[in-house]
Design a protein around this nucleic acid. Sequence first.
DNA 1: GCCAACGTTGGC
DNA 2: GCCAACGTTGGC
Length: 151
Amino acid sequence: MAYWLMKSEPTVYSITDLQRDGITLWDGVRNYQARNFLTSMALEDLAFFYHSNTQPPGIVGLMKVVDTNQVDPSQFEAANPYYDPKSSPAQPRWYTVRVGYLETFPHPLSLDQLKQTFNPEELWVVRRGNRLSVMPVLPEVGDRLLSLARG
DNA sequence: GCCAACGTTGGC
DNA sequence: GCCAACGTTGGC
């Protein structure tokens, strides 16, 4: 079982939206490094839900991977903001996972708090200028995040 | 293959 | 709203 961290802007899709939906397809990732992390995810992996572009940014909940290696359908939809004209159903370029809601943390971990607790080497999201939207989390860091966030 | 221009992310 | 960081594009 591996830990991951996945970002979403709450105005686009929030932990509350995931709680309501139960399961969702994590679509719209258009960065090769992030996609490569998505395709290396396994069933039952745990992912921290990170709210970006909000006040305060930070980790707000937990989800689990329920379906791996899913073709992201938004890449084929011309009217979709994530449309990729260079992709085709015969040769899809963008893959993702389906995630399930597990919990909303009683003690969300703000970016500020994360910066005080972890260094940039052990937790990528606190790296300066970090723009990656899907990233791995070290097992021991994941364990600590869980115990901090659950209080 | 280099690199300037451009677009996007995301903290502040 | 600003702007630093940085990924991508495209001319050469």
